[in-house]
């Protein structure tokens, strides 16, 4: 009796694990499949429309060139990261390494960070428009956009850096302090390099947000497009995502095609920037990578 039961049980367990395995596979294939479908769809519709004029020409209603938008996109990514990453990482260092446990300020900062992370980007846009565009008088400009976007990506950088720094084992800190290193030296030579991969994944998420941002930027850096690229921070100039949005909603005969072309470029930009970030951080945090 017992034995029969056990055998029945075993068969049941085997069946369950088979079903689960199939489920896992199915989900995996579906995810990858959807991803590939989207990528192919955009690339197939977009890439054939990419030409030199579109990439590097001057903008007019014929070329609909993305050149100035490409340049502004890179400019925005670079400067926003230069502003937000140090602030975010230092904030995370303070929260994890220096603030005393149960500190009131820490609780407030955490609450603020979590709240800020959940706010829709259009709210940032409104805020940026009032503060940077109007009150500070930056007008609708790349600068206003960069300021807004920097604030917007701060929470994701802070929280991912905080997680990464927290997950650095205490025994590394003890080892370093035990050799007579200072607190600060330990943070910058042991803790941050060890946490680099985690900090980096926050940076990559942040890049994704910048590249994909439209709502917050329409209010701050504007939808204007210049004929040729500029690095002037006070110019009003759109990024690629806004370029795509504008093209998609414009009535010109070829603007839909060019919207897809922009999408294809957008994918490429994200890919390139992530690659560069990974490489750079690999060099910065050479620790642990030199197996």
């Amino acid at each position: 009796m017992e034995l029969v039961n056990a055998e029945k049980n075993l068969r049941k367990r085997k069946l369950i694990s088979l079903v689960l395995k199939a489920g896992v596979w199915l989900c995996g294939i579906m995810t990858v499949g959807i991803l590939i479908f989207i990528l192919l769809f955009i690339l197939l519709r977009g890439v054939p429309n990419i030409n030199m004029e579109f990439l590097f020409g001057t903008y007019n209603s014929d070329t609909l060139s993305a050149f100035s938008s490409i340049v502004t996109t890179f400019e925005m990514i670079l400067i926003s990261l230069l502003v937000a990453v140090p602030i975010g990482v230092f904030c995370a260092i303070y929260l994890t390494e220096y603030a005393k446990r149960g500190n009131k300020a820490v609780k407030v900062i955490r609450l603020a960070v979590d709240t800020l992370a959940g706010i829709p980007s259009i709210v940032y846009g409104l805020f940026g428009m009032i503060l940077f565009v109007n009150i500070l008088g930056f007008r609708a400009s790349v600068l206003s956009g960069i300021c807004t976007v920097s604030i917007m990506i701060l929470p994701v950088i802070i929280s991912s850096s905080e997680e990464a720094i927290k997950s650095v084992p205490d025994m590394y800190r003890e080892g370093s302090l035990g050799l007579g290193a200072t607190r600060l030296g330990t943070v910058f030579r042991i803790v941050v390099p060890t946490a680099m991969p985690g900090i980096l994944s926050g940076v990559i998420l942040a890049i994704g947000r910048i590249v994909g941002e439209t709502a917050a930027l329409i209010f701050t850096s504007g939808t204007n497009v210049l004929e040729s690229p500029t690095l002037d921070l006070f110019a009003s100039q759109r990024t690629l995502a806004i370029h795509m949005y504008m093209l998609a909603s414009e009535g010109l005969p070829h603007s839909k095609d060019m919207a897809f072309a922009t999408g294809a470029i957008l994918i490429l930009v994200v890919f390139l920037v992530n690659l560069a970030t990974t490489k750079l951080a690999g060099r910065l945090g050479r620790l642990g990578n030199d197996k």
């Binding site: 590394y172 080892g175 370093s176 035990g178 007579g180 290193a181 060890t194």
Partner: peptide
Amino acid sequence: TMLRKRVGMVFQKPNPFPMSIYENVAY
């Protein structure tokens, strides 16, 4: 920090830094 330079410590669990062998000793 001066004290810890003069009085070194080896912990229960081996805790080499996640770096090369050379860098561990040179740290």
